[in-house]
Design a binder for these strands. Structure first.
Lengths: 223, 223, 223, 223
DNA sequence: AATGAATGAGTCTTCATTCAT
DNA sequence: TATGAATGAAGACTCATTCAT
């Protein structure tokens, strides 16, 4: 039944990585349907039959690839969720940095994710995206609920609405991190320091819009 | 010469609309490459040759469709840009409503736009997106510059940064309007009143983050 | 039945000529199958239906065109055949000049002829070519027989063989006249004087190979 | 990479030959554009994809076929060029025989060549024909120059003109050899002896027109 | 376990021809 | 008589998938 992936997992580690890297590249460059198994095997220099032996089908390749990466993406977030130090917006800032790091390290996988979001016809699209969204929603709601309980949030704002705003702005932030790596010639890839500064600015913007009191503690004190 | 679109434009109005609607649907459902001219003509019940007579090529169909809609999208924005009544955030609110209206009326076209953003391989992608981005950027910068000149903006914020934030949040707002219509089962389509309320909330959020004084009307009245 | 060509022949003379010229050009440029009725009507600026009204079919266009021109080609040859002045090789020379004139005046039609010779799939190919070959053969045999009767031909040569040689060399001569006009950039189009000189050279070459005595009267006299 | 022809060349020899024979037949019967890949695979009883795997494209099929044959055609000519025994006209005679042999063995390929000469739109037409013409021209000029140097040529004739005449007559000779095989019902295919006789006749004709002294062996012995 | 030749449904596109207006 | 929209068979070509070696 699933003797397929067994075959793949018995492969020497470097070959396994080459295969995954090539597949990732192909899907990132062309999306799912436009990706070509022919090109993959040609570039890998292995037989077409082998790839099908490993994964069973084109869809199998994609699923293996994507699920693996989703798991990797979740790790740092779990750490942040469990470390309750700092207020909501500091944790958001840490989240942004973790996301930026992942997106910078795996721009292609992130590119696949973006394509998948706005494209039907990806295999398991609903499954994958649903999983991601549920996780993301749960994650943010946890943070928000925590913050609300300790009075860090403007009292007049709905928690769901707050989570939505967080999601919107964070999402956009990640995209801005990934775009330069995805579109060659789409601007310079920002260095770590720049990313850090931007993450802080975004967190401040959110604090100002959603935080209790007013925005950032020092500046807005009306004399 | 330009006999292609002549043929199409000489068609009876209702047939023309059926053709465009079907093509829109196909591209919205499958993206560009995966869209099938065969399916289009089959569903339309017309001969394959006819569609090619009208538009010359698959790409021709797409371009006709898209450019036509871009033009339509720009109209209400132009009106808002030229009507200078209200402060920046009220105009933003009007913009959001105009966008929401368009996106609700043409969810499929908007879906195509979203696919195009995150997918390479669309014909004329760079041309179309470039045009849209330039227009959007110019539009927002005009609004922001106007607001800054009359002291509506926090003085410590860069105008470019402000435009970026506006863009990010508005963009997400539009997506939230369109998603239910795009993904069947992705939630209920919001009615007009709900949309109006949300637009106001988003505008307020932006006012709080970017506006002069402080954020929402009561609090920031510093005494 | 043949109300078709009636329609065409009732057309104003200049329109008729434009139609024929355009059709000739199309067939000359692309051969029969690759010729496009679409292109013809587009360039002519008339309706597709009209052309089919005139000629019934693509094949009809071609046949009308070709048969008309064949008739025109035969005229000067008839004159030469009936004017018995001069020896065989002088008449050959006159024939070459007549051919050259036609070929220079109607290079496109000649181009069609050449394509037809080496290509199957032309409508009526066998009919047309058969007609032409029969005519050509009869024409040359008449000339040769005449010459043989008056002792102008080497006695050791077969009349059929002689006709073949005449045909070969004349054919090549015509091609050399037409090639520059057919292949743009294939060399300069020779002026009348040059053509005349060449025709004389070819005739002399033939006289030398086929004529009685030896070749040209003065030179080869072994003192 | 170059996996296309690898696939084809790895095929069992008899299948390879069947494929090439069928393709040759198709191109010979219909010319390039009118040739149908569909028909080829149908007659071969193989899948369409296979043919494209082998050659990449219709044009690829043609190029493979043609270039292979050109190479084969050149071989015997090279031998004649390097064997300097005999006078010019004897070598011409040998050339004619070699050509006749090839043309009789591969009438279809020769048919393709003839079509190509008079038809635009063949892929690589200019490349292929240019190559052939250059080779032919070089070949004949070598022979003619050689002959002139040893006084075998009429002194009053230009060497270029002589080469042209040789080319014209030889060309026609080859055509006369091939035509019966090409046009079913176009006459009987001549046997070897007949061909030999004809080649000698043509060579004599040329000797008479171009050779030093005078023409045929008896007469020109001037005394 | 690895190979790579074979498959065939599916892609976009062209074009001669017809016929209602 | 002239028009030009409609037709659909046929064209070249792609590609995920299978299977004998």
């Amino acid at each position: 039944m699933e003797s397929r992936n067994r075959t793949f997992e018995n492969l020497p580690g470097d070959k396994r990585e080459r295969v995954l890297a090539e597949a990732t590249r192909e899907f990132a460059e062309h999306g799912y349907h436009q990706a070509s198994v022919n090109r993959m095997v040609q570039r890998l220099g292995i037989a077409k039959g082998s790839l099908f032996k490993y994964f069973g089908s084109k869809q199998g390749i994609f699923e293996y690839l994507f699920s693996q990466t989703v798991a990797e993406f979740k790790k740092p977030l779990k750490a942040i969720r469990d470390d309750e130090s700092g207020d909501l917006f500091e944790r958001i800032e840490r989240t942004l940095l973790a996301g930026a790091e992942f997106v910078t390290a795996h721009p292609l996988v992130y590119g696949i994710y973006l394509k998948m979001v706005y494209q039907q016809g990806f295999p398991m699209r609903d499954t994958f995206l649903g999983e991601i969204r549920t996780a993301s929603d749960k994650y943010l709601r946890t943070l928000v609920a925590n913050a609300a309980a300790t009075g860090q949030l403007r009292p007049d704002i709905d928690q769901g609405m707050a989570a939505l705003h967080l999601d919107a702005v964070m999402d956009r932030f990640l995209q801005s991190c990934a775009v330069p790596a995805l579109n060659p010639g789409g601007g310079d890839i920002p260095d770590r320091e720049t990313t850090r500064t931007r993450a802080r600015a975004v967190a401040d913007f959110l604090r100002r819009g959603l935080g209790a009191h007013s925005a950032n503690s020092e500046e807005h004190r009306c004399r």
